[in-house]
Amino acid sequence: MIEFTLNGKAVKYEGDGKRPLLWYVRDELNLTGSKYGCGIAQCGACTMHLNGAPVRSCSVPMSAVAGGKVTTIEGLDGKTAEAVQQAWQSLDVVQCGYCQSGQVMSAVALLANNQAPNDADIDQAMEGNLCRCATYQRIRGAIHQAADNLAREA
């Protein structure tokens, strides 16, 4: 049995340890905000936080989350997450939206570690999140805006 914390709640998983975290969360817990895009950790649509760090949940086996803390887009909370999501809306970042849960998760993780990222920091942190609609310019802008708003509140 694998025990871990998902969005603040204790979870016990009894299935195949090789099952990727993404598919457990989507198909068994019915939390569908995290998306499948490639299955090989190349697109970032499935990004979740494992112990605060962004991970590609399509390629994280359940055995690797034992004792860990997992956060999905549904479980995001706190000032940083709020600032990111507000900035995403204020700049109308989204187009098709399919990759955006993953983008938001990566952006929140970036700002948790770097309160004032420059464009190069942003590019580096977000390079693993593909957006076929190419909303990248607004992603950069929204991360800057969220950082500015957080700095003003602090």
């Binding site: 569908t32 998306k35 887009i73 809306q89 989204v94 939206g97 938001v104």
Partner: peptide, 26 residues
């Protein structure tokens, strides 16, 4: 402002794979 910004920024927007039907098989 876009009418779909909020639901597409918080994971709530539904796409085809997010549809669940009783007894559904994948």
């Amino acid at each position: 402002p876009r009418l779909d910004s909020q639901e597409k920024s918080n994971g709530q927007a539904l796409y085809t794979a997010d549809i669940r039907r009783p007894g559904m098989l994948h």
